[in-house]
Nucleic acid binder design. Structure first.
Lengths: 127, 127, 127, 127
DNA sequence: GTGGTCTAGACCACC
DNA sequence: GTGGTCTAGACCACC
């Protein structure tokens, strides 16, 4: 994972796990690295990792089993909510930026459809 | 302007000027801050600013008159090209991200149209 | 390579590579010295060499592969253009100087032809 | 006068006077600056200027009248010789460079004639 | 004041 | 090892 300073590091850590869960790279029951491990690989202060893990526990994204480690425990509902939340952020950013450089909403939709075609379908549209 | 470390500083400076030009905040003939001024306000080394300005000169976004300053000199063609380039980047990022979290292209278009409505038109669609 | 202060060092470096390419001493695919190596041999700051290399990259004279080095990548078209550009500079300088010391153009041509003979052909004129 | 370090400074000083004489900017009888004046305006060590002036005196390009200054004293013969010498240097350099970038002598002559035309006659060819 | 060049040296990413 | 970015600061040329 690559960190930047656009937002707090612990937030970036959480968002990274969210992405992996929504994308299906991590599933309920999967073990994630220990805080110590994680802190070492990402070169981040262990306290920062602890804060991220604690918040994920509060949100019920993960659960910690003493002596065993930390595990993903997202329900389907939670995954759906996270997916919608991430989509909202992407949509918000996309709309604001396109408007700010002078595209009308209609133009933006048109450009989007064209770009999707030229980039090839994502396979989900096929029968 | 706020800097992060997601990309090189000199690149961020260039992109910021591009945005301002495409948005019409800066027009051909406008003088931009001197290298030293700019460096002071964004707290960056003058050499870094100079690199950004030099590359903008190469791209013919600006022209510099020694002893006088640096001036915007973008043609309409160049503005159009920059607008399209910026749109392409936004589209690319948006499409890739939405696909990666499991939206089909059709769903993405639908979500976009809904989000646009709920955020209010951008004024360009109205009569 | 010998540096003087008639023009910027980075320009002299670029011009030296141009000459070598036009003369065929360097060909597409050839690796040129690393920035550090070059800086040491000509006793110049690595940053100055990097600026020269970077501008050559922009001009598409070379391409750089991070971690591997910098390589000549001039097309035949580019070589022809560089050759003509160098010739133009030489011609411009020669004509201006000869005129300034009082030679008519006809006299200059005559002097040139005489000098060529006395210096021996360049081998390309012979049968 | 602009100095570079391509050759010894005193040589550059002499050559500069030669040029001015051959071009007619300086004529026999004209007074040139005192050594002290010259050293100040060109920001050069007075000893260097002295060496240049002394050599010009030896060559009989100038003569120094005690208490009055230094004066140009070139004969027509000397001017012709200097003109020819300067031409030789220009020719030598031009021929070598054009050959080195791959022009045959015939091509060089052709390019020269074309360049002379496109730059307009020097006025000496007219009736 | 303005921009242009250069040095010295740090730290990073990729190989 | 390679190139890429950035800082700090000097000195120059043009206005």
């Amino acid at each position: 994972m690559i960190l930047d300073n656009s937002k707090a590091i612990y937030r970036q850590i959480i968002d990274d796990f969210k992405k992996k869960i929504v994308r299906g790279e991590l599933q309920a029951g999967d073990r994630i690295p220990s805080q110590r491990e994680y802190a070492q690989t990402v070169r981040v202060n262990p306290n920062t990792v602890q804060r991220a893990y604690r918040e994920m526990e509060t949100m019920q994204m993960v659960e910690t089993l003493r002596g065993q480690g930390t595990f993903i425990c997202t329900s389907q509902n939670m995954k759906d909510a996270m997916k919608q939340e991430m989509a909202s952020e992407l949509l918000e950013y996309f709309i604001v930026q396109m408007r700010s450089i002078g595209f009308t909403d209609a133009e933006t939709v048109h450009e989007l459809q064209q770009a999707m075609e030229s980039k090839g379908g994502n396979g989900n549209d096929s029968v």
